[in-house]
C-alpha cells in the first residue's frame, strides 16, 4: 500500500476505531468458540430460576447469565458470532469475486455481454432485497449455512460490478494500457497487470461496507426467525429468542444487539477510513 495512504489512515481516528472494532469482533467470532466456558447448546437446570422459571442473571457459574432455556449466554455469544461472521465474510468474498470479474469483463470487453449484464444489474437493484432473500432462503428446505451465504453473495455484487466497470472503462483508455497493447501484450495479461491493480482499491472499500450490510441482512433474517435455523444460532437468532424476555431479562436482547451494532459500526467506519485514505479526492 502507498505509504501516504497508510499515514492518512493512521491519522484518522474513526478509521482506527473501526479497525479495532473489526479486530475485536472478528477475534471474538473466530477464537471465541475456543474460549467459551461451556457447551453453548447444553441446557442447565440451574440456569433457570426454580420458582419463576426465568433465566438467571449473571453469577459465578453463568458469567453473563443464562438464556431462556438455561443455556450459558456467554458461550452462546462466543459461538453465535462465528456463524454471523462466517456468513458475512463468505458472502462478501463471493460478492467481491463475482463483482470484480463481471465489472472487469463488462468494462473491458463491452458489447452485448455488457448491455445484457447491466440490464441484469438493473433488475437486481429493483428487487426488494430483504424480502427476496427471505423468500429464496425459505424455499430451500435444507437448513444450511452455505445456502445463505451463496444466496447473499450472489445477490450483493451489483454495486461493486458497476463501480468496477466504470473504473475499468476509464483505465482501458489510459496511455499505459494503449502502450501495452501496442507492445503486443495479450489481453488477459493487460487485465491482470494493468486493469486489476487499478480496480482493486474501490473493491476493498466497498467490500468493507458490504460486510456491514450483510451482517445486517443476516441478523435481520435470523431475527425474524427466517434466517439461520436452529440448532445453529447467530447473534440474530439470539435476538429473536430474547424478544419474549425483553422486560424480564433485557440483556438477552442487549448483548447480541450490542455485538451486532459493534460489528456493523466497525466495518462501516473501516470502510469510510479506507476511502479517505486510499481515495482522498472524494
Amino acid at each position: 500500500m502507498d505509504p501516504r495512504a497508510w499515514r492518512r489512515f493512521r491519522k484518522n481516528k474513526g478509521a482506527i476505531v473501526g479497525a479495532l472494532l473489526v479486530l475485536f469482533v472478528t477475534l471474538t467470532a473466530f477464537l471465541g468458540p475456543l474460549a467459551a466456558p461451556k457447551d453453548p447448546d447444553l441446557q442447565y437446570s440451574e440456569g433457570l430460576d426454580a420458582t419463576t422459571g426465568l433465566p438467571v442473571a449473571a453469577n459465578a457459574q453463568f458469567r453473563m447469565g443464562a438464556d431462556q432455556l438455561g443455556r450459558d449466554e456467554l458461550s452462546r455469544l462466543l459461538h453465535g458470532g462465528r456463524v454471523s461472521m462466517q456468513v458475512a465474510f463468505g458472502a462478501t468474498a463471493l460478492a467481491v469475486f463475482v463483482g470484480l470479474a463481471i465489472g472487469v469483463a463488462t468494462g473491458f470487453f463491452g458489447g452485448v455481454f455488457d448491455t445484457a449484464t447491466m440490464r441484469l444489474v438493473d433488475v437486481l437493484l429493483s428487487m426488494p432485497f430483504l424480502l427476496i432473500v427471505i423468500v429464496i432462503n425459505q424455499v430451500f428446505d435444507s437448513p444450511s449455512l452455505a445456502v445463505l451465504y451463496v444466496l447473499l453473495g450472489l445477490l450483493s455484487w451489483t454495486t461493486l460490478a458497476r463501480v468496477t466497470r466504470a473504473k475499468t472503462m476509464q483505465v482501458r483508455e489510459l496511455e499505459f494500457v494503449q502502450a501495452a497493447r501496442a507492445l503486443g501484450m495479450s489481453r488477459s495479461r493487460i487485465v491482470v497487470r494493468h486493469v486489476l491493480p487499478n480496480v482493486i482499491q474501490p473493491a476493498i472499500i466497498l467490500g468493507s461496507t458490504l460486510v456491514a450490510q450483510i451482517i445486517i441482512v443476516e441478523s435481520a433474517m435470523s431475527f425474524l426467525g427466517l434466517g439461520v435455523r436452529p440448532p445453529t444460532s447467530s447473534w440474530g437468532t439470539m435476538l429473536h429468542d430474547g424478544v419474549g424476555f425483553i422486560s424480564n431479562a433485557p440483556r438477552l436482547v442487549l448483548l447480541p444487539g450490542a455485538l451486532i451494532v459493534a460489528a456493523v459500526f466497525g466495518f462501516n467506519l473501516l470502510g469510510e477510513g479506507l476511502r479517505d485514505a486510499l481515495d482522498p479526492k472524494s
Binding site: G14, A212, I216, S219, A220, F223, L239, V243, I246, S247, P250, V253, G257, I260, V261, V264, F265, N268, L269, E272
Partner: peptide
Amino acid sequence: AILGISAPTFVTGLLFLNILAF
C-alpha cells in the same frame, strides 16, 4: 449519524420498545 446507519432497525426498534414503551 454513522451510529444510526450502523444500528440495524431491529436493534434500535427493540431498544425503543423496551425503553420508551415498556
